Amino acid sequence: MFKRLMMVALLVIAPLSAATAADQTNPYKLMDEAAQKTFDRLKNEQPQIRANPDYLRTIVDQELLPYVQVKYAGALVLGQYYKSATPAQREAYFAAFREYLKQAYGQALAMYHGQTYQIAPEQPLGDKTIVPIRVTIIDPNGRPPVRLDFQWRKNSQTGNWQAYDMIAEGVSMITTKQNEWGTLLRTKGIDGLTAQLKSISQQKITLEEKK
């Protein structure tokens, strides 16, 4: 169930391209415009997507990853294993993690069937560096609404905000991946996880038929 919630949630996290980005210092504006741009692209490019579902990787690479804190999220997933990894191991892992996100997020976007969304009203940021933004996803086919909290983090150097995690039903996506990959990290280390991520990233994206 959580895996499905995570995939549905990713439908609204794909941010804007650099040329049309919203105010990078306001995570609420980023979330709002990102959702609108993403849904528009999914709707307008269905012919290309249906002809070649792996085209979704391109959308992810162009529109999402430049505005997601990939390395920060990847380091959180590694936890204690990050500090013990060599620079070469980290570089290989982050490259594999990025390719994994292209496949995983692309597969999530393949679930698009006309969903709509509501974003919580903007709250004062103050001096906060981590801000959760509640998004409610509404399914046109009558499924119950899904309420999610996207975690946005302020870059201490640039002042810009980027998304790095999502919490559904009190469970963090980062925590879920830590639990899912924990045994592999304990037995085969970061190299074993890197190899698995490379394998997963090679899987073809498949479209979910409308139910």
Rank of each mutant, 00 (worst) to 15 (best):
M1Y: 00
M1N: 00
M1S: 01
F2E: 11
F2M: 03
K3S: 03
L5V: 08
L5Y: 14
L5S: 02
L5M: 11
M6E: 09
M7G: 04
M7F: 05
M7W: 08
M7Q: 03
M7H: 09
V8A: 01
V8Y: 06
A9V: 12
L10E: 02
V12Y: 10
A14K: 00
A14N: 08
A14Y: 00
L16P: 10
L16E: 00
L16F: 00
A18H: 10
A18C: 01
T20D: 14
T20C: 02
A21G: 04
A21N: 02
A22D: 06
A22F: 14
D23I: 15
D23T: 02
D23C: 13
Q24R: 06
T25H: 04
T25W: 11
T25V: 08
T25F: 00
T25S: 09
N26E: 10
N26M: 00
P27I: 00
P27F: 13
Y28I: 12
L30G: 03
E33W: 12
E33P: 06
E33C: 00
A34G: 10
A35R: 10
Q36C: 00
Q36R: 06
K37I: 05
K37E: 02
F39Y: 08
F39Q: 12
F39R: 04
D40R: 03
R41A: 12
L42R: 05
K43L: 04
K43S: 02
N44G: 02
N44Q: 14
N44D: 14
E45W: 11
E45Q: 15
Q46V: 08
Q48G: 07
I49A: 05
R50G: 02
A51V: 14
N52F: 01
P53T: 03
D54F: 01
Y55M: 15
Y55F: 02
L56D: 15
R57F: 00
R57W: 06
D61W: 12
Q62I: 13
Q62L: 04
Q62G: 06
E63T: 04
E63Y: 13
E63M: 12
L65I: 15
L65V: 03
P66I: 02
Y67L: 07
V68Q: 00
V68D: 11
V68G: 03
Q69I: 14
V70R: 02
V70Y: 01
K71W: 09
Y72W: 06
A73I: 00
G74I: 14
A75I: 02
L76M: 08
L76C: 13
L76P: 05
V77K: 13
V77T: 13
L78A: 06
L78W: 07
L78D: 09
G79I: 15
G79M: 14
Q80L: 11
Y82R: 02
S84C: 01
S84M: 11
A85S: 08
A85P: 03
T86K: 04
T86M: 07
P87L: 09
P87T: 05
P87K: 05
A88F: 12
Q89C: 04
Q89H: 01
R90C: 03
R90D: 06
R90E: 11
E91D: 02
A92D: 00
Y93A: 07
Y93K: 15
F94C: 09
F94R: 07
F94T: 00
A95R: 13
A96N: 13
A96G: 03
R98K: 07
R98I: 14
R98V: 09
E99G: 08
E99F: 07
L101F: 03
L101N: 01
K102T: 13
K102Q: 05
K102C: 13
Q103V: 04
Q103T: 14
Y105R: 03
Y105D: 06
Q107S: 09
Q107W: 11
Q107D: 00
A108E: 11
A108K: 15
L109Q: 11
L109S: 02
A110S: 10
A110P: 02
M111G: 11
M111I: 14
Y112D: 15
H113F: 04
H113K: 11
G114M: 02
Q115L: 03
T116F: 06
T116L: 13
T116Y: 14
A120K: 12
P121G: 08
E122G: 10
E122I: 06
Q123Y: 14
Q123E: 05
Q123S: 14
Q123L: 11
L125Q: 07
G126A: 15
G126W: 07
D127E: 10
D127G: 12
K128A: 06
T129V: 12
I130G: 12
V131G: 08
V131D: 05
V131F: 11
P132W: 03
P132F: 03
I133F: 11
R134W: 12
V135Q: 12
V135D: 02
V135E: 14
T136F: 10
T136M: 15
T136I: 01
I137F: 01
D139A: 08
D139V: 06
P140S: 09
P140G: 07
N141Y: 00
N141Q: 04
N141L: 11
G142M: 14
R143C: 03
R143Q: 03
R143T: 09
R143A: 13
P144W: 13
P144L: 08
P145S: 09
R147D: 15
R147S: 05
R147Q: 15
L148A: 13
L148W: 13
D149I: 00
D149E: 04
D149F: 00
D149C: 13
F150S: 12
Q151P: 04
W152K: 02
W152T: 02
W152Y: 15
W152V: 12
R153H: 13
K154F: 13
K154Y: 00
N155G: 06
S156V: 09
S156D: 12
T158V: 15
G159N: 07
N160Y: 14
N160K: 03
N160T: 12
N160P: 11
N160C: 03
N160V: 08
Q162P: 13
Y164D: 13
D165E: 02
A168N: 11
A168F: 00
G170V: 03
V171Y: 01
V171S: 14
S172L: 10
M173C: 13
M173V: 09
I174F: 15
T176K: 07
K177I: 14
K177D: 05
Q178S: 15
Q178D: 15
N179I: 01
N179M: 12
W181M: 02
W181H: 02
W181K: 12
G182V: 09
T183R: 09
T183M: 01
L185M: 03
L185C: 05
L185A: 12
R186D: 06
R186Q: 07
R186N: 00
T187C: 07
G189K: 12
I190T: 02
I190G: 11
I190F: 12
D191R: 04
L193I: 06
T194E: 14
A195V: 10
A195Y: 06
L197C: 00
L197T: 13
L197A: 10
K198C: 12
K198H: 12
Q202E: 09
Q203N: 15
K204N: 03
K204V: 09
K204P: 09
K204L: 15
T206P: 06
T206C: 03
T206M: 02
E208A: 04
K210W: 13
